[in-house]
Design a protein around this nucleic acid. Structure first.
Lengths: 330, 330
DNA sequence: TTGTAAGCGTTATCAG
DNA sequence: CTGATAACGCTTACAA
């Protein structure tokens, strides 16, 4: 069917010019002046003969692959596909392509897959996770520039781009305070990185508003609906219960909804709720729809690509802000 | 730092053998007999000198890239990352790599991205979508083998692998019948492909059980919680209301929960609910946890890779079965 | 069983 | 402004 792929030689021969000329035209090299007429003819022949450059040959000759490796556990998670989207968009704008490798969330990083990426000569490596966690990469990773997204290198070797959890916690709490609440509970998640920041932000907002921090209003548990339910139930039963809940994750908020409902409380009239993550499927469909903090996934993905392309240091330890998505629960 | 990459020549020279010998050993070519001792020395040198094959050079020489293109809108969806996982696992087992390109769910297929994949010389193309829909691919796609996953080619040019919706509908309904229900409502979604099959399965199950199909119990709307809520509300108000609901999506089931709750009905005691999709975040965290039909995403992803590698026709129009995930709602 | 040499399809370096 | 010619790092007949 495909009578043989047409090569650069074919189009050069077809036009009676040299291969270099064709190459120059196709790569639009501005450092070399080529007659407009020649260019036109080259492009014409290209589309006429149906020529398509051969990426591997190009890489071999130029020793540039324009390939970026993205190792991640997010493809199989309901979460943060935004990182892929953002990274890919940024890469595409630079003529780069992502080689995405999805790994299990527990395997910190599969060596064989990394080895494969290096054989493909990726020119940079992004390591992204669904949850904000600590990771450790195989030594081989150091052969190319590396940036972590939404995770931190426990060995301290690579820069990482993570959400500004403190700011998120602050924003959520400020929002609640702005609506007149003074007794605001924090139903936090246990996980180290995200929890600590969210809590600091929560405390800062209260402090700034001159509200005393009541330790009885701060609890934590696993990041799921079950824990959200149990913790909320407990906290609503206390004397002098909160009028607002800031939940560490949307899933916890999901559980909080059930607990509130069972306690006969209306949302947001009797108790306001703010979540965290903006997991669309949960947040948008809860009734009432959940007000929550969105994480800057796309932005982080794009920033990672930019970091790989430019000044790595500019992004080292850099933190990116999410934002409040106001719906009906607070 | 990296003093210069070590090439095959380097290790050949280091060992005093020819490059071909090294190549044969590294590719473990069984059609050529090489002294065990030689093999050992080669591998030793490889790890000692830190040699890593150059994929592009290899592709150029062998005209095999071992690259498969995966164009999809699922990366940015909460859905079906399983397709990626399954496809990648199957590809990896064959020494192949996926070049994943994520596109917006509305763009049926971006031509520029496809062009890029073809320049990279992908040896096959998988086009996968989050929802079971109809799509149309650019002509250029036909230059390589193509399989669609979870979608169907409206132009009828390519085979596709889709879930067996009829079987899913049948399974869900059978389950409800098995629990003694006879008045089972179908809160279906509107979308063409998935809805029709689920409905046929529902009807077949009823027919087989000798239960009359009551048109008043079959309704449909958009695939979200809002519609699920409204439709359920309406159907529960009818005289002789159903004792069980089979919802076209988990999100619709989410809405159904709210409607049932507001009607003062307990799940599953007063009304049983079965969903569809097994969107973990919804299904597992609803209270009570939702019994639902899981779609065979990983299986479809893997099947696509296999189809691309072998007999395409064996998979043409092939349909894969999902399964019931029994939780607490029915 | 191992070596030689000719590509694979580009880019890059120099002359012209 | 254009054209030879040598890489790029590997696979693969074909010889030895």
């Amino acid at each position: 069917m495909v009578s043989r792929r047409v090569s650069m030689d074919d189009i050069a021969r077809h036009l009676g010019v040299s291969r270099s000329t064709v190459s120059f035209v196709i790569n639009d090299r501005s450092d070399i002046r080529i007659a407009e007429e020649t260019k036109r003819r080259v492009w014409e022949a290209v589309s006429e003969l149906g020529y398509r450059p051969h990426a591997a040959a190009r890489s071999l000759a130029s020793s540039r692959t324009n390939l970026l490796g993205l190792v991640t556990d997010i493809a199989s998670s309901p979460f943060g596909g935004g990182i892929i989207t953002g990274a890919q968009r940024a890469a595409w704008e630079r003529g780069q392509v992502l080689l995405i490798v999805s790994v299990d969330s527990d395997a910190s990083a599969d060596t064989a897959m990394l080895e494969m990426l290096l054989e493909r000569r990726v020119e940079g490596l992004i390591y992204a996770t669904a949850g904000h966690i600590g990771v450790s990469l195989p030594d081989a990773a150091s052969e190319v520039p590396v940036v972590l997204v939404h995770c931190e290198d426990v060995d301290g070797r690579y820069p990482s781009i993570v959400p500004d959890e403190e700011h998120g916690g602050y924003t959520a709490t400020r929002h609640l305070i702005g609506q007149g609440h003074r007794r605001i509970a924090l139903i936090n998640l246990d996980a180290h990185f995200p929890a600590d920041g969210r809590r600091s932000g929560y405390e800062r907002a209260l402090r700034e508003a001159g509200i005393d921090i009541d330790p009885a209003l701060v609890v934590s548990g696993s990041a799921d609906a079950g824990a959200g339910y149990a913790l909320t139930q407990r906290i609503l039963r206390a004397d002098d219960p909160p009028t607002a809940l800031f939940c560490g994750t949307d899933r916890m908020a999901m559980g909080a909804y059930d607990a509130a409902r069972e306690a006969g409380l209306r949302i947001p009239e009797d108790v306001a709720v703010v979540g965290y993550d903006d997991q669309e499927i949960v947040a948008a469909y809860l009734r009432p729809a959940l007000t929550t903090i969105a994480l800057p996934f796309e932005e982080m993905g794009a920033a990672a690509v930019e970091a790989l392309n430019g000044d790595m240091d500019a992004f080292a330890g850099s933190t990116m802000r999410g934002w409040l998505v106001e719906r009906a629960s607070a």
